[in-house]
Design a protein around this nucleic acid. Structure first.
Length: 484
RNA sequence: GGCGCUAUCGUCUAGGGGUUAGGACGUGAGAUUCUCAAUCUCAAAACCCGGGUUCGAUUCCCGGUAGCGCUACCA
Protein backbone atom coordinates (compact mmCIF):
# COMPACT_ATOMS: atom_id res chain seq x y z
CA UNK A 1 0.00 0.00 0.00
CA UNK A 2 1.49 3.32 -0.99
CA UNK A 3 1.69 6.02 1.60
CA UNK A 4 -0.57 8.37 -0.27
CA UNK A 5 -3.33 5.79 0.02
CA UNK A 6 -3.74 6.48 3.71
CA UNK A 7 -7.28 7.40 4.61
CA UNK A 8 -8.54 8.15 8.09
CA UNK A 9 -11.87 9.30 9.38
CA UNK A 10 -13.72 10.83 12.25
CA UNK A 11 -17.18 9.41 12.68
CA UNK A 12 -19.15 11.42 15.20
CA UNK A 13 -22.61 10.51 16.29
CA UNK A 14 -24.89 13.58 16.28
CA UNK A 15 -26.57 12.87 19.57
CA UNK A 16 -25.68 15.90 21.64
CA UNK A 17 -23.30 18.79 22.01
CA UNK A 18 -20.10 18.65 19.97
CA UNK A 19 -17.74 16.86 22.30
CA UNK A 20 -14.16 17.81 22.98
CA UNK A 21 -13.32 14.10 22.75
CA UNK A 22 -14.55 14.10 19.16
CA UNK A 23 -12.21 16.97 18.39
CA UNK A 24 -9.40 15.10 20.11
CA UNK A 25 -9.80 11.96 18.04
CA UNK A 26 -10.39 14.06 14.92
CA UNK A 27 -7.12 15.89 15.55
CA UNK A 28 -5.09 12.70 15.60
CA UNK A 29 -6.81 11.32 12.53
CA UNK A 30 -6.28 14.63 10.77
CA UNK A 31 -2.59 14.84 11.67
CA UNK A 32 -1.89 11.25 10.69
CA UNK A 33 -3.60 11.59 7.32
CA UNK A 34 -2.01 14.95 6.53
CA UNK A 35 1.43 13.87 7.64
CA UNK A 36 1.32 11.04 5.14
CA UNK A 37 -0.37 12.96 2.37
CA UNK A 38 -3.57 10.98 2.75
CA UNK A 39 -7.19 11.93 3.17
CA UNK A 40 -9.22 12.68 6.23
CA UNK A 41 -12.90 11.90 6.01
CA UNK A 42 -15.84 12.93 8.11
CA UNK A 43 -18.78 10.57 8.38
CA UNK A 44 -21.93 11.14 10.37
CA UNK A 45 -23.04 8.07 12.30
CA UNK A 46 -26.70 8.82 12.79
CA UNK A 47 -28.09 5.31 12.89
CA UNK A 48 -29.65 5.90 16.27
CA UNK A 49 -32.73 7.59 14.89
CA UNK A 50 -34.16 8.29 18.33
CA UNK A 51 -31.19 10.26 19.60
CA UNK A 52 -29.68 11.77 16.48
CA UNK A 53 -30.58 15.26 15.41
CA UNK A 54 -29.74 17.52 12.52
CA UNK A 55 -29.10 20.34 14.95
CA UNK A 56 -26.46 18.33 16.73
CA UNK A 57 -24.89 17.39 13.42
CA UNK A 58 -24.65 21.02 12.41
CA UNK A 59 -23.10 21.97 15.73
CA UNK A 60 -20.49 19.25 15.35
CA UNK A 61 -19.61 20.23 11.81
CA UNK A 62 -19.34 23.90 12.61
CA UNK A 63 -17.32 23.26 15.74
CA UNK A 64 -14.80 21.10 13.94
CA UNK A 65 -14.59 23.73 11.23
CA UNK A 66 -14.07 26.39 13.86
CA UNK A 67 -11.11 24.40 15.09
CA UNK A 68 -9.66 24.28 11.62
CA UNK A 69 -9.86 20.53 11.16
CA UNK A 70 -10.75 20.46 7.49
CA UNK A 71 -11.91 17.17 6.02
CA UNK A 72 -11.49 16.10 2.43
CA UNK A 73 -14.75 14.23 2.16
CA UNK A 74 -17.93 14.44 4.15
CA UNK A 75 -21.49 15.66 4.17
CA UNK A 76 -21.81 19.04 2.45
CA UNK A 77 -18.29 18.60 1.09
CA UNK A 78 -19.09 15.49 -0.88
CA UNK A 79 -16.61 12.99 -2.26
CA UNK A 80 -16.43 9.78 -4.23
CA UNK A 81 -17.70 7.56 -1.42
CA UNK A 82 -20.84 9.41 -0.47
CA UNK A 83 -23.29 9.82 0.96
CA UNK A 84 -21.40 10.46 4.19
CA UNK A 85 -24.39 10.27 6.45
CA UNK A 86 -25.21 6.74 7.54
CA UNK A 87 -28.93 7.35 7.62
CA UNK A 88 -28.69 7.82 3.87
CA UNK A 89 -26.85 4.56 3.38
CA UNK A 90 -29.31 2.27 5.11
CA UNK A 91 -29.87 0.16 2.01
CA UNK A 92 -26.21 -0.78 1.87
CA UNK A 93 -26.25 -2.08 5.42
CA UNK A 94 -29.44 -4.05 4.82
CA UNK A 95 -27.91 -5.65 1.78
CA UNK A 96 -24.79 -6.53 3.68
CA UNK A 97 -26.80 -7.96 6.54
CA UNK A 98 -28.70 -10.02 4.00
CA UNK A 99 -25.43 -11.34 2.62
CA UNK A 100 -24.29 -12.36 6.05
CA UNK A 101 -27.61 -14.04 6.63
CA UNK A 102 -27.35 -16.00 3.41
CA UNK A 103 -23.79 -17.02 4.09
CA UNK A 104 -24.84 -18.32 7.47
CA UNK A 105 -22.75 -15.80 9.38
CA UNK A 106 -25.78 -14.16 10.91
CA UNK A 107 -29.28 -15.14 11.99
CA UNK A 108 -32.65 -13.59 12.57
CA UNK A 109 -33.54 -13.13 16.21
CA UNK A 110 -37.15 -12.70 17.27
CA UNK A 111 -36.49 -12.38 20.98
CA UNK A 112 -38.44 -9.66 22.72
CA UNK A 113 -36.49 -6.93 24.49
CA UNK A 114 -38.05 -7.74 27.84
CA UNK A 115 -36.99 -11.38 27.61
CA UNK A 116 -33.46 -10.29 26.80
CA UNK A 117 -33.44 -7.87 29.70
CA UNK A 118 -34.63 -10.57 32.05
CA UNK A 119 -32.10 -12.98 30.67
CA UNK A 120 -29.28 -10.54 31.27
CA UNK A 121 -30.39 -9.92 34.80
CA UNK A 122 -30.49 -13.61 35.55
CA UNK A 123 -27.07 -14.08 34.04
CA UNK A 124 -25.69 -11.28 36.14
CA UNK A 125 -27.35 -12.61 39.27
CA UNK A 126 -25.81 -15.99 38.56
CA UNK A 127 -22.45 -14.31 38.25
CA UNK A 128 -22.20 -15.06 34.57
CA UNK A 129 -21.24 -12.87 31.68
CA UNK A 130 -24.35 -11.27 30.20
CA UNK A 131 -24.82 -12.16 26.58
CA UNK A 132 -27.29 -13.50 24.09
CA UNK A 133 -28.21 -17.09 24.95
CA UNK A 134 -28.56 -18.23 21.35
CA UNK A 135 -32.23 -19.08 21.51
CA UNK A 136 -33.00 -18.06 17.91
CA UNK A 137 -29.83 -19.66 16.64
CA UNK A 138 -31.57 -22.97 16.22
CA UNK A 139 -34.78 -21.79 14.66
CA UNK A 140 -35.74 -23.93 11.67
CA UNK A 141 -36.23 -22.35 8.27
CA UNK A 142 -39.94 -23.02 8.35
CA UNK A 143 -40.22 -21.49 11.80
CA UNK A 144 -38.44 -18.39 10.59
CA UNK A 145 -40.61 -18.16 7.48
CA UNK A 146 -43.75 -18.54 9.51
CA UNK A 147 -42.75 -15.79 11.95
CA UNK A 148 -41.80 -13.54 9.09
CA UNK A 149 -45.18 -14.30 7.57
CA UNK A 150 -46.78 -13.02 10.74
CA UNK A 151 -44.68 -9.84 10.50
CA UNK A 152 -43.02 -10.50 13.79
CA UNK A 153 -40.33 -7.91 14.45
CA UNK A 154 -36.81 -9.26 14.38
CA UNK A 155 -33.20 -8.22 14.47
CA UNK A 156 -30.21 -9.74 12.73
CA UNK A 157 -27.41 -10.95 14.95
CA UNK A 158 -23.95 -12.05 13.98
CA UNK A 159 -22.73 -15.52 14.78
CA UNK A 160 -19.68 -15.63 16.97
CA UNK A 161 -17.33 -18.56 17.59
CA UNK A 162 -17.89 -20.16 20.97
CA UNK A 163 -14.30 -21.07 21.58
CA UNK A 164 -10.82 -19.94 20.76
CA UNK A 165 -9.22 -16.55 21.00
CA UNK A 166 -9.34 -13.50 18.80
CA UNK A 167 -6.09 -11.63 18.40
CA UNK A 168 -6.45 -7.94 17.72
CA UNK A 169 -3.42 -6.10 16.46
CA UNK A 170 -3.20 -2.61 17.78
CA UNK A 171 -0.58 -0.31 16.36
CA UNK A 172 0.39 0.97 19.79
CA UNK A 173 -0.54 -1.85 22.12
CA UNK A 174 0.61 -4.84 20.11
CA UNK A 175 -1.44 -8.01 20.12
CA UNK A 176 -4.51 -8.01 22.30
CA UNK A 177 -6.04 -11.40 22.99
CA UNK A 178 -9.73 -11.65 23.63
CA UNK A 179 -11.47 -14.97 24.08
CA UNK A 180 -14.37 -15.49 21.71
CA UNK A 181 -16.66 -16.64 24.49
CA UNK A 182 -16.53 -13.14 25.93
CA UNK A 183 -17.85 -11.69 22.69
CA UNK A 184 -21.60 -11.32 22.41
CA UNK A 185 -23.69 -12.23 19.38
CA UNK A 186 -24.04 -8.63 18.49
CA UNK A 187 -27.15 -7.22 16.87
CA UNK A 188 -26.18 -5.97 13.42
CA UNK A 189 -29.51 -4.78 12.12
CA UNK A 190 -32.07 -3.42 14.53
CA UNK A 191 -35.81 -4.00 14.40
CA UNK A 192 -36.20 -0.68 12.64
CA UNK A 193 -33.92 -2.04 9.90
CA UNK A 194 -31.21 0.43 10.82
CA UNK A 195 -27.74 -0.96 11.46
CA UNK A 196 -25.95 -0.83 14.77
CA UNK A 197 -22.60 0.91 15.03
CA UNK A 198 -20.72 -2.32 14.52
CA UNK A 199 -22.20 -3.17 11.15
CA UNK A 200 -22.40 0.34 9.75
CA UNK A 201 -18.90 1.15 10.90
CA UNK A 202 -17.33 -1.87 9.25
CA UNK A 203 -19.33 -1.52 6.06
CA UNK A 204 -18.49 2.14 5.70
CA UNK A 205 -14.85 1.91 6.64
CA UNK A 206 -14.53 -0.66 3.92
CA UNK A 207 -16.66 1.20 1.39
CA UNK A 208 -14.81 4.42 2.05
CA UNK A 209 -11.40 2.86 1.81
CA UNK A 210 -10.36 3.68 5.35
CA UNK A 211 -6.87 2.33 5.94
CA UNK A 212 -6.26 3.36 9.54
CA UNK A 213 -8.78 3.52 12.32
CA UNK A 214 -7.68 5.79 15.14
CA UNK A 215 -10.40 5.73 17.73
CA UNK A 216 -10.96 5.78 21.47
CA UNK A 217 -9.76 3.04 23.76
CA UNK A 218 -13.36 2.30 24.65
CA UNK A 219 -13.64 0.31 21.43
CA UNK A 220 -10.96 -2.26 22.16
CA UNK A 221 -13.39 -4.82 23.51
CA UNK A 222 -15.65 -4.70 20.50
CA UNK A 223 -12.79 -4.97 18.03
CA UNK A 224 -13.24 -8.77 17.74
CA UNK A 225 -16.76 -8.24 16.40
CA UNK A 226 -15.38 -5.91 13.79
CA UNK A 227 -12.57 -8.22 12.87
CA UNK A 228 -15.01 -11.08 12.50
CA UNK A 229 -17.24 -9.04 10.22
CA UNK A 230 -14.28 -8.20 8.00
CA UNK A 231 -13.52 -11.89 7.79
CA UNK A 232 -17.12 -12.87 7.09
CA UNK A 233 -17.30 -10.31 4.34
CA UNK A 234 -13.93 -11.19 2.91
CA UNK A 235 -12.59 -7.68 3.36
CA UNK A 236 -9.16 -6.70 4.57
CA UNK A 237 -9.09 -5.04 7.92
CA UNK A 238 -7.80 -1.50 8.42
CA UNK A 239 -4.98 -0.93 10.87
CA UNK A 240 -6.32 -0.35 14.36
CA UNK A 241 -4.94 2.16 16.79
CA UNK A 242 -6.76 2.83 20.03
CA UNK A 243 -6.17 6.24 21.53
CA UNK A 244 -6.24 6.86 25.26
CA UNK A 245 -9.35 8.45 26.67
CA UNK A 246 -9.45 12.03 27.92
CA UNK A 247 -10.14 12.04 31.65
CA UNK A 248 -11.83 14.10 34.31
CA UNK A 249 -9.66 15.20 37.24
CA UNK A 250 -10.86 12.06 39.07
CA UNK A 251 -9.55 10.00 36.13
CA UNK A 252 -12.92 8.85 34.92
CA UNK A 253 -13.75 9.22 31.25
CA UNK A 254 -14.29 12.88 30.42
CA UNK A 255 -17.91 13.76 31.09
CA UNK A 256 -19.93 16.91 31.20
CA UNK A 257 -20.95 16.25 34.79
CA UNK A 258 -17.37 16.80 35.89
CA UNK A 259 -15.77 18.90 33.19
CA UNK A 260 -16.91 21.15 30.39
CA UNK A 261 -17.00 18.87 27.35
CA UNK A 262 -18.85 20.90 24.77
CA UNK A 263 -16.81 22.62 22.13
CA UNK A 264 -19.48 25.31 22.20
CA UNK A 265 -18.48 26.06 25.78
CA UNK A 266 -14.86 26.58 24.84
CA UNK A 267 -15.85 28.80 21.97
CA UNK A 268 -18.12 30.92 24.13
CA UNK A 269 -15.56 31.23 26.89
CA UNK A 270 -13.21 32.75 24.40
CA UNK A 271 -10.62 30.06 23.94
CA UNK A 272 -8.85 30.45 20.64
CA UNK A 273 -9.30 27.45 18.36
CA UNK A 274 -5.53 27.32 17.85
CA UNK A 275 -5.01 27.09 21.59
CA UNK A 276 -7.63 24.44 22.17
CA UNK A 277 -6.26 22.33 19.36
CA UNK A 278 -2.75 22.88 20.67
CA UNK A 279 -3.83 21.77 24.11
CA UNK A 280 -5.54 18.65 22.76
CA UNK A 281 -2.31 17.90 20.93
CA UNK A 282 -0.56 17.96 24.28
CA UNK A 283 -2.83 15.26 25.57
CA UNK A 284 -0.91 11.99 25.26
CA UNK A 285 1.27 13.44 22.54
CA UNK A 286 4.38 15.58 22.57
CA UNK A 287 6.66 17.37 20.16
CA UNK A 288 10.05 15.72 19.67
CA UNK A 289 11.74 18.92 20.86
CA UNK A 290 9.47 19.25 23.87
CA UNK A 291 7.96 22.53 22.72
CA UNK A 292 4.50 22.91 24.19
CA UNK A 293 3.12 25.63 22.02
CA UNK A 294 2.62 24.56 18.45
CA UNK A 295 0.28 25.11 15.54
CA UNK A 296 -1.79 22.48 13.81
CA UNK A 297 0.59 22.57 10.86
CA UNK A 298 3.60 22.11 13.09
CA UNK A 299 1.89 19.15 14.70
CA UNK A 300 1.23 17.64 11.30
CA UNK A 301 4.88 18.08 10.36
CA UNK A 302 6.14 16.28 13.41
CA UNK A 303 3.32 13.84 13.87
CA UNK A 304 3.98 10.21 14.51
CA UNK A 305 1.78 7.70 16.25
CA UNK A 306 4.76 6.36 18.17
CA UNK A 307 4.86 9.57 20.19
CA UNK A 308 1.49 8.81 21.74
CA UNK A 309 1.66 7.80 25.37
CA UNK A 310 -1.00 5.43 26.58
CA UNK A 311 -1.90 6.67 30.03
CA UNK A 312 -5.24 8.49 29.96
CA UNK A 313 -4.51 12.21 30.25
CA UNK A 314 -6.47 14.38 32.65
CA UNK A 315 -7.94 17.41 30.94
CA UNK A 316 -6.59 20.35 32.95
CA UNK A 317 -8.37 23.64 32.37
CA UNK A 318 -5.64 25.61 34.14
CA UNK A 319 -3.00 24.55 31.68
CA UNK A 320 -5.38 25.24 28.83
CA UNK A 321 -5.84 28.74 30.25
CA UNK A 322 -2.11 29.27 30.36
CA UNK A 323 -1.73 28.10 26.80
CA UNK A 324 -4.63 30.22 25.60
CA UNK A 325 -3.05 33.23 27.28
CA UNK A 326 0.18 32.53 25.47
CA UNK A 327 -1.59 32.36 22.13
CA UNK A 328 -3.31 35.64 22.86
CA UNK A 329 -0.10 37.31 23.94
CA UNK A 330 2.35 35.83 21.48
CA UNK A 331 0.46 35.18 18.29
CA UNK A 332 -1.83 38.12 17.85
CA UNK A 333 -0.80 41.70 17.34
CA UNK A 334 -3.06 44.45 18.59
CA UNK A 335 -5.08 44.57 15.40
CA UNK A 336 -5.54 40.84 15.21
CA UNK A 337 -6.50 40.75 18.84
CA UNK A 338 -9.11 43.44 18.30
CA UNK A 339 -10.49 41.53 15.36
CA UNK A 340 -10.67 38.26 17.31
CA UNK A 341 -12.48 39.95 20.14
CA UNK A 342 -14.86 41.61 17.72
CA UNK A 343 -15.70 38.27 16.09
CA UNK A 344 -16.04 36.49 19.37
CA UNK A 345 -18.29 39.22 20.79
CA UNK A 346 -20.41 39.10 17.67
CA UNK A 347 -20.89 35.41 18.27
CA UNK A 348 -22.08 36.33 21.75
CA UNK A 349 -24.54 38.72 20.12
CA UNK A 350 -22.94 41.98 21.07
CA UNK A 351 -21.08 44.25 18.77
CA UNK A 352 -17.98 46.06 19.94
CA UNK A 353 -16.88 49.31 18.45
CA UNK A 354 -13.60 49.09 16.62
CA UNK A 355 -12.18 52.21 18.22
CA UNK A 356 -13.07 50.89 21.65
CA UNK A 357 -11.26 47.66 20.89
CA UNK A 358 -8.18 49.40 19.54
CA UNK A 359 -7.98 51.57 22.64
CA UNK A 360 -8.52 48.97 25.31
CA UNK A 361 -7.16 45.93 23.56
CA UNK A 362 -3.48 46.60 24.20
CA UNK A 363 -4.21 47.30 27.87
CA UNK A 364 -6.02 44.04 28.49
CA UNK A 365 -4.30 41.61 26.16
CA UNK A 366 -1.66 40.40 28.58
CA UNK A 367 -4.14 40.33 31.43
CA UNK A 368 -6.57 37.73 30.20
CA UNK A 369 -6.51 33.98 29.77
CA UNK A 370 -9.71 33.75 27.76
CA UNK A 371 -11.61 36.39 25.85
CA UNK A 372 -14.51 36.31 28.27
CA UNK A 373 -12.15 37.62 30.95
CA UNK A 374 -12.61 40.95 29.20
CA UNK A 375 -16.02 41.36 30.77
CA UNK A 376 -15.04 42.04 34.36
CA UNK A 377 -11.87 43.84 33.29
CA UNK A 378 -13.66 46.33 31.06
CA UNK A 379 -17.01 46.60 32.80
CA UNK A 380 -15.98 49.75 34.72
CA UNK A 381 -15.33 51.46 31.42
CA UNK A 382 -18.83 50.84 30.16
CA UNK A 383 -20.08 52.89 33.08
CA UNK A 384 -20.27 56.56 34.01
CA UNK A 385 -19.96 56.85 37.74
CA UNK A 386 -18.91 53.57 39.31
CA UNK A 387 -19.88 52.39 42.74
CA UNK A 388 -17.08 52.29 45.25
CA UNK A 389 -16.83 52.14 49.02
CA UNK A 390 -14.71 53.99 51.58
CA UNK A 391 -13.26 50.63 52.63
CA UNK A 392 -11.96 50.07 49.15
CA UNK A 393 -10.50 53.57 48.95
CA UNK A 394 -8.79 53.20 52.31
CA UNK A 395 -7.58 49.68 51.71
CA UNK A 396 -4.00 50.81 51.12
CA UNK A 397 -1.35 52.28 53.36
CA UNK A 398 -2.66 55.85 53.39
CA UNK A 399 -5.11 57.10 56.00
CA UNK A 400 -8.35 58.89 55.28
CA UNK A 401 -6.75 62.29 55.49
CA UNK A 402 -3.99 61.50 53.10
CA UNK A 403 -6.35 59.95 50.58
CA UNK A 404 -8.64 62.97 50.73
CA UNK A 405 -5.71 65.27 50.26
CA UNK A 406 -4.48 63.30 47.31
CA UNK A 407 -7.87 63.33 45.65
CA UNK A 408 -8.21 67.06 46.25
CA UNK A 409 -4.78 67.77 44.81
CA UNK A 410 -5.49 65.73 41.72
CA UNK A 411 -8.90 67.27 41.29
CA UNK A 412 -7.23 70.63 41.41
CA UNK A 413 -4.56 69.85 38.84
CA UNK A 414 -6.60 67.77 36.52
CA UNK A 415 -7.88 70.92 34.87
CA UNK A 416 -4.46 72.07 33.71
CA UNK A 417 -3.07 68.80 32.51
CA UNK A 418 -2.65 68.21 28.85
CA UNK A 419 -4.77 65.07 28.50
CA UNK A 420 -2.41 62.32 27.59
CA UNK A 421 -1.06 59.51 29.70
CA UNK A 422 2.45 60.92 30.07
CA UNK A 423 1.21 64.24 31.40
CA UNK A 424 -1.32 62.48 33.61
CA UNK A 425 1.48 60.34 34.99
CA UNK A 426 3.63 63.38 35.65
CA UNK A 427 0.75 65.06 37.43
CA UNK A 428 0.03 62.08 39.67
CA UNK A 429 3.71 61.58 40.42
CA UNK A 430 3.81 65.18 41.56
CA UNK A 431 0.77 64.63 43.75
CA UNK A 432 2.41 61.56 45.29
CA UNK A 433 5.61 63.48 45.92
CA UNK A 434 3.71 66.30 47.54
CA UNK A 435 1.97 63.83 49.82
CA UNK A 436 5.31 62.33 50.72
CA UNK A 437 4.03 58.91 49.72
CA UNK A 438 5.44 56.19 47.58
CA UNK A 439 3.93 56.18 44.16
CA UNK A 440 2.34 52.77 44.60
CA UNK A 441 0.71 53.80 47.87
CA UNK A 442 -0.45 57.12 46.57
CA UNK A 443 -1.86 55.60 43.41
CA UNK A 444 -3.88 52.90 45.06
CA UNK A 445 -6.93 55.02 45.88
CA UNK A 446 -6.80 56.42 42.38
CA UNK A 447 -7.07 52.95 40.94
CA UNK A 448 -10.16 52.45 43.03
CA UNK A 449 -11.64 55.83 42.16
CA UNK A 450 -11.01 55.59 38.43
CA UNK A 451 -11.24 51.88 37.66
CA UNK A 452 -13.31 50.67 40.59
CA UNK A 453 -10.66 48.28 41.78
CA UNK A 454 -7.11 48.15 43.01
CA UNK A 455 -6.62 45.39 40.47
CA UNK A 456 -7.00 46.78 37.04
CA UNK A 457 -5.58 47.89 33.74
CA UNK A 458 -2.85 50.58 33.91
CA UNK A 459 -4.16 53.75 35.48
CA UNK A 460 -2.67 56.46 33.30
CA UNK A 461 -3.81 54.80 30.09
CA UNK A 462 -7.24 54.22 31.51
CA UNK A 463 -7.53 57.88 32.48
CA UNK A 464 -6.44 59.07 29.08
CA UNK A 465 -9.01 56.90 27.35
CA UNK A 466 -11.78 57.67 29.79
CA UNK A 467 -11.27 61.38 29.29
CA UNK A 468 -11.03 64.33 31.59
CA UNK A 469 -14.75 64.68 32.25
CA UNK A 470 -15.33 61.16 33.46
CA UNK A 471 -12.14 61.14 35.48
CA UNK A 472 -13.07 64.37 37.17
CA UNK A 473 -16.49 63.01 37.98
CA UNK A 474 -15.11 59.78 39.37
CA UNK A 475 -12.51 61.53 41.50
CA UNK A 476 -15.17 63.84 42.86
CA UNK A 477 -17.42 60.89 43.55
CA UNK A 478 -14.58 59.23 45.44
CA UNK A 479 -14.09 62.35 47.53
CA UNK A 480 -17.80 62.39 48.35
CA UNK A 481 -17.78 58.74 49.28
CA UNK A 482 -14.91 59.38 51.67
CA UNK A 483 -16.80 62.10 53.51
CA UNK A 484 -19.45 59.69 54.77
C1' G B 1 -18.56 -10.14 38.78
C1' G B 2 -16.19 -11.19 33.77
C1' C B 3 -12.95 -9.39 30.03
C1' G B 4 -9.55 -5.69 28.39
C1' C B 5 -6.29 -1.46 28.66
C1' U B 6 -2.98 1.50 31.53
C1' A B 7 0.75 2.89 35.45
C1' U B 8 7.31 8.80 35.85
C1' C B 9 6.28 15.11 40.40
C1' G B 10 -0.88 17.18 42.32
C1' U B 11 -1.56 17.64 36.56
C1' C B 12 0.52 17.25 31.16
C1' U B 13 4.85 14.88 29.74
C1' A B 14 10.56 13.66 28.23
C1' G B 15 13.66 9.77 28.92
C1' G B 16 15.45 5.07 29.06
C1' G B 17 19.68 -1.17 31.48
C1' G B 18 24.41 2.81 34.62
C1' U B 19 21.14 10.12 34.36
C1' U B 20 22.13 14.95 40.10
C1' A B 21 15.31 11.21 36.24
C1' G B 22 14.65 16.70 32.16
C1' G B 23 10.74 20.28 30.71
C1' A B 24 5.79 22.53 31.35
C1' C B 25 1.16 23.85 34.21
C1' G B 26 -0.05 24.77 39.07
C1' U B 27 2.10 26.05 44.04
C1' G B 28 5.78 28.90 47.19
C1' A B 29 9.79 32.69 47.44
C1' G B 30 12.29 36.73 45.10
C1' A B 31 13.32 40.49 41.06
C1' U B 32 10.87 44.02 37.95
C1' U B 33 6.53 47.17 37.24
C1' C B 34 1.73 52.89 38.35
C1' U B 35 -2.07 48.11 40.79
C1' C B 36 -2.93 43.43 38.56
C1' A B 37 -1.11 40.63 34.82
C1' A B 38 3.01 39.66 31.70
C1' U B 39 8.36 38.81 32.11
C1' C B 40 12.83 36.86 34.73
C1' U B 41 15.29 33.92 38.81
C1' C B 42 15.02 30.31 42.54
C1' A B 43 12.52 26.35 45.44
C1' A B 44 9.51 22.13 46.91
C1' A B 45 7.53 18.02 44.08
C1' A B 46 7.67 11.65 40.65
C1' C B 47 9.76 6.39 38.33
C1' C B 48 2.80 1.90 42.28
C1' C B 49 4.42 -2.78 45.06
C1' G B 50 6.86 -7.65 44.92
C1' G B 51 9.59 -11.14 42.41
C1' G B 52 12.77 -12.47 38.45
C1' U B 53 16.68 -11.48 34.10
C1' U B 54 21.29 -8.72 34.75
C1' C B 55 27.52 -6.83 37.29
C1' G B 56 23.49 -3.18 37.49
C1' A B 57 16.87 -1.98 36.90
C1' U B 58 12.61 3.35 37.12
C1' U B 59 13.53 1.18 32.10
C1' C B 60 12.97 -5.81 30.02
C1' C B 61 9.75 -10.22 31.90
C1' C B 62 6.11 -12.24 35.40
C1' G B 63 2.76 -11.57 39.45
C1' G B 64 0.10 -8.30 42.61
C1' U B 65 -2.31 -3.75 43.40
C1' A B 66 -4.71 0.41 41.76
C1' G B 67 -7.11 3.40 38.12
C1' C B 68 -9.93 3.39 33.93
C1' G B 69 -12.86 1.22 29.97
C1' C B 70 -16.28 -2.35 27.98
C1' U B 71 -19.98 -5.72 29.36
C1' A B 72 -27.52 -2.39 24.83
C1' C B 73 -32.01 -3.32 19.16
C1' C B 74 -26.17 3.85 22.20
C1' A B 75 -22.20 5.08 19.81
Amino acid sequence: MSESAIRTRIAPSPTGDPHVGTAYVALFNYCFARKHGGQFILRIEDTDTARSSRQSEEAILSSLRWLGLAWDEGPEVGGPCGPYRQSERAELYRRTAGQLLEAGHAFRCFCKPDRLARMREEQKAAGKRPGYDGQCLSLSDSEVQSRLGHSEPFVIRMKVPREGTCVIQDLLRGNIEIAWDTVDMQVLLKADAMPTYHLANVVDDHAMGITHILRGEEWINSAPKHKLLYEYLGWSMPVLCHLPLLRNPDKSKLSKRKNPTSLLFYKRMGYLPEALLNYLGLMAWSMPNGEEKFSLNAMVQEFSLERISLGGPVFDLRKLDWLNGRWIREDLDDDQFAERVRQWALNERWALNERFLKQWGPLVRSRIAVLSDLGPLLAPFFSGIISITPELLLDGKLDRNAVSTGLALALDRIENVEWNKDEIEKMLRDVAAEMGAKLRDALRPFYVAITGSAVSVPLFDAMEILGRDLCRARLRHAREVLKH
